[in-house]
Design a protein around this nucleic acid. Sequence first.
DNA 1: TCTTCAACTGTAAGATCTTACAGTTACGCG
DNA 2: CGCGTAACTGTAAGATCTTACAGTTGAAGA
Lengths: 248, 248
Amino acid sequence: MPVTGCIDLIEALSSAGTVDELHTVCSRLCEDYGFERFIYGSRIPTSFVKPYFIFISGYPKAWRDHYTQNNYMVVDPTVVYCAENITPMLWDGRSVLHDPTPEVQRFMSEAQDFGISSGISFPVHSAQGDFAMLSLASELQVINRPMIDQVLPVGQLFTAYLHEAVRRVFDSDVLPLTRVELTQREKECLLWVTEGKTNWETSRILNISERTVVFHLQNIQTKLGVSNRHQAVARAVAQGFIQPQFTQ
Amino acid sequence: MPVTGCIDLIEALSSAGTVDELHTVCSRLCEDYGFERFIYGSRIPTSFVKPYFIFISGYPKAWRDHYTQNNYMVVDPTVVYCAENITPMLWDGRSVLHDPTPEVQRFMSEAQDFGISSGISFPVHSAQGDFAMLSLASELQVINRPMIDQVLPVGQLFTAYLHEAVRRVFDSDVLPLTRVELTQREKECLLWVTEGKTNWETSRILNISERTVVFHLQNIQTKLGVSNRHQAVARAVAQGFIQPQFTQ
DNA sequence: TCTTCAACTGTAAGATCTTACAGTTACGCG
DNA sequence: CGCGTAACTGTAAGATCTTACAGTTGAAGA
């Protein structure tokens, strides 16, 4: 059934330079694998209370508006699932969801009114703390297994490349996501903070004065634009500035 | 070429209950897609300084031992790449790596002495902060494109299911990774700490006394088994106990 | 050579967190 | 009705972080 090779689609993503081009590639994936609609969304941990969201929507505008107005992200079972998992989720009006709450049932039935009846959602989580997902949707009441089996591997890979492409496009085009760099020493100081060490303890570990530890941590706070050490730790960990060590 | 369907392999993962069974499924993937060797590894952020590692190795034992003794995780370009990225990495002795350092060149040549010459590595990052990767390796000097194009989509999906299965097996079998639960209120308090708020500010936001904020944060520290608030924040963020909000 | 930057250091007042003490209230479950 | 649990509250001493002041040193690049 697929007329475009999976590799071709991925190359198309890599060479896309605008959101519109990405939209087109997603539409092609949809068509090729027998779905009518798609939507991509991602959440960037610029803040925990008010993160930054990116959407590329192939869903009906009316449904998107309704969705946003009702803050359906917290209800949508595909979002809830994908935020916690790494494997795809199949969904349709009935069988797939385990004991849906009335709220979720209402949500699914409303979606169906807009032609979003069944589909598959692919989650992605990045080392930089991004959460992204791509949903492919169909008007079919019940999910079509053979169709799914075909799109399953391709979709998972595609979604990873799609998110990578989105970040590339947004980092160059749309400004609000500025990446800062921490120096080696700053990361070292921060590492020991995440391990529960005090300034003094860290100074002994790194063999520098306590004042210098404070100095580096102050610089981190300035660079990250945060108001205290707790926020700096949260931001740095969430965005992958420091990762668990490989060295034992 | 693949004799086993991709879906069958994934079902085999889901029904596996031991590490040995997972090992067998990975071997089957290898065979089916024309690779000789595989290795799966994951890093669980139990601590930033000394995280917990899990390996399922289909690599020669001698090479594994040599690798561990030399702490090659910090040199291995596939690990370095996968720790930062979400898309697969193709590798072989020459072309694929951009300006390898002498250290990396030596590493690649040593690997080759053990029959690890080229291959593909699939990264996975989970919402719980796990980092995992699966490498499929071949003795071929130069990477075989048609072979790769076939395994690319399947490998990405398989790796996600593999990691899920590994966590399932380890959570039930091997004890050291005990998951704790934070209450709703505890998460709320922690959320505002990650946003840089003081105890007093948080108390105003949540409409409780400052003492109660302290109380919840103390409970979090006890539950997570950490020594202060910074470590609690780092651990909670790293392990996905709190995620950026979906509600605007 | 001049500039930039990482890395480093000291003092001190004030803000905030940590820890120890000792409780109350409301809810669900057996 | 007892038990466990989430959620809540007060006081106070001591530990730790934050912010303000004001710098030096060495290496890399223009």
